[in-house]
Design a protein around this nucleic acid. Structure first.
Lengths: 142, 142
DNA sequence: GTGAGTGCAAAATGTTTGCACTGGG
DNA sequence: CCCAGTGCAAACATTTTGCACTCAC
């Protein structure tokens, strides 16, 4: 319930309404936490308990959470956006064949942009995506 | 002409046909080399000299080049894919406000996944995306 | 001459929008 | 009671597909 409580508190802090839809979306995020769900994944999950929820509401809520910095958006060129409720600094390991995505918890202290290389940008964040082939796909014929 | 020649040679190597459409796409890539163009960008560029080219052909050609490893695909969650004709190992610096994308030519020797952290994956590649705000967007009101 | 490549239109996919209705505060 | 939030349908944007035609080899 950690995620749900955190998100509900954040909504309160932003004076936003705590609707059943949002609550169930938070629970789905909690359940799918290490699965990097898409909007569609969340939709399907919430639908099981709230059959009339609309995909629009899911998109709206996810967008708001991203805007508040409570959800990380992960884009991998699969044609859809995945969401990561784990906002701790971590990196990703992507299977190029099946799309499986795992978390990597290593710090790379050397990843920092020297001031003379920022081209005037204010850098706020960085992410590393490791690309490869997962164990399952290595076994299967290409 | 470096890019065009390289790509034409690659096509020959793969016994693929060198059509005018492909040639112009290569030239457009060459011209937009440091601009990380989208398929649409290439389409608009080539259209100026080859008004009847179809977007389908552009997509086909770009997909083939990516498949042959001659073009890098860059995904940033903007709803479209950008292509980077520069296949040298380099990283990216993205403006979160306007989408401007710059190249970063630094090596981060520490970015390597220890064998006990690969979760069985065969890692072939990695990319770093630095996120921030570009100089122009810093000046303008949010 | 032949099949890879092309162009067009249509479809598929993922996401956003307009708008009337509803219910949390 | 009021407006943020919701649901629906339609719109939108990007990319893919089916298929007949064409042209590089």
């Amino acid at each position: 319930m950690i995620i749900e409580q955190k998100l509900v508190a954040a909504l309160r802090g932003h004076k936003m309404k705590i609707t059943p839809q949002r609550r169930f979306i938070f629970q789905a995020l909690e359940r799918g936490m290490y699965r990097h769900p898409t909007a569609e994944d969340i939709f399907r999950d919430v639908r099981q308990t709230l059959p009339d929820i609309s995909l629009t509401t899911v998109y709206n809520t996810l967008r708001e959470l991203v805007g508040m910095g409570l959800l990380r958006q992960v884009d991998l060129g699969e044609g859809m956006t995945r969401f990561d409720p784990n906002t701790d600094l971590h990196h990703h390991l992507l299977c190029m064949r099946c799309g499986r995505l795992e978390d990597i918890y290593i710090r790379f202290p050397c990843i920092a942009l020297p001031a003379d290389q920022t081209q005037g940008f204010t850098v706020t964040n960085h992410q590393v995506i490791f690309e490869g082939i997962c164990p399952d796909c290595q076994i299967q014929p290409a």
